[in-house]
Design a protein around this nucleic acid. Sequence first.
DNA 1: CGTTATCTTGACTGCTGTCAAGTTATGTGG
DNA 2: CCACATAACTTGACAGCAGTCAAGATAACG
Lengths: 246, 246
Amino acid sequence: MINGLSVVRKDIHNSEVPALCSACEARHRGICGTLTADQLVELNKHSKRRKFAGGTEVIGQGETLSAYSNILRGVVKLSKMLSDGRQQIVGLQFAPDFMGRPYVEESQLTAETAVETEVCLLPRQIVDRMVNESPELERKLHQQNLKELDEARDWMLTLGRKTAREKVASFLYLIATHIDPEVEEATSFDLPLTRADIADFLGLTIETVSRQMTKLRRESIIQIENNRHVTCSNMERLRTAAGIDE
Amino acid sequence: MINGLSVVRKDIHNSEVPALCSACEARHRGICGTLTADQLVELNKHSKRRKFAGGTEVIGQGETLSAYSNILRGVVKLSKMLSDGRQQIVGLQFAPDFMGRPYVEESQLTAETAVETEVCLLPRQIVDRMVNESPELERKLHQQNLKELDEARDWMLTLGRKTAREKVASFLYLIATHIDPEVEEATSFDLPLTRADIADFLGLTIETVSRQMTKLRRESIIQIENNRHVTCSNMERLRTAAGIDE
DNA sequence: CGTTATCTTGACTGCTGTCAAGTTATGTGG
DNA sequence: CCACATAACTTGACAGCAGTCAAGATAACG
């Protein structure tokens, strides 16, 4: 239906969609959606699922990129560091995001899981070849990267122009809207990041993050249980605190 | 001579590269480089060069995107605003950057020329059609957007974690390395941005920018003439002041 | 030459960072 | 299950960097 052009090899391989993929696709609608059944079979032969504990460095700054991956569950932090150790998280990736930087051999950032995370690893060579074969796939990657660019620019406004209070509220709202791929705005969720991570994401210190969380709690904009679990009964107030209003 | 529209139009299937394009390509190696001669002729029929004075709003937040453009000369600011007027510049585009946001009808940011700027306007419809015809073009657009993503993330580190001094030095270094497409590191250049623009780019106030510029001048890391012209004889010291060192 | 925009400088305030102590969670070995 | 150690978080006191307000200087412009 999408196109007949990229019907490639009709060979010994059976062209049914691998069971693993169809289960994944049903839930995640990720990058693989544009592939033909044949291509999925081919990719599935080389891909593998992996589960990482929270706090695992998946790719380090300067390391060789040998694979792309689909995030099936969990959260990954992308960060950059200055030589003196100051750190900034420049992106958070949630399921069902695709991770990887095409056309570049070496990572310019560090990728680290924030919580237990499951991914589907796709060998670089295979994907790169498929990109050449099917323009639809390149388009999908392009769109994923454009989404990341939009998100990065949104966050630049937060980093450069918002107060500590607005930054923390913005972060909470971001998590509420991204933590569950099936829910638009979760009113109750576990924070995938420690206070230190949140500080690195917002360009603040741990102490300031903590103080602002306490303030938001005292004003009953949020409730906090066990440090990590947040409930927000009135999203409108959270958005206002975040400076998201028109 | 500037206006290329009246260049002889031959048959669409004549495969001579339009004179205007080959002159442009020689200097800028932009997006059009992947097009066939036929495609260039086609595109050239509909494209037009335009010159904007500095401070012209090219596209407003929320406006319909009717065209892409190649920057031939000048600088364009991309910015976002909060409802109360706080503003953040989220990207600077120099020649020979390609400007445009594929797959989206409406601009999420404002584009404004910082100085007198000349662009080659490419109608959206034509380019979108060509993208479907030639995967090479999509790839080129993808790569341009990836470059912008890398730049946005670099700048997030600056916004979130650098001091005012480092921010200003980082900005000066950015201009030194981008203002002239033919020079890697210019030691002498005119600032394309006012102090107010610089403040909006760095997430600072005008006064702080001014004070830090004065300090860098007093330390002889830079010289300033007429407020706008900067000379830096020792780039290494500027990089150090910018926190760019490994 | 006068008007206006842009930029610089100073005095002061306040937000966020720093340093330090204390509290609450999490995990481990006995 | 408890005692202990460690990590994560909160809170307080204080300091300093950058913001605010204000005035004056310089450049741009008609």
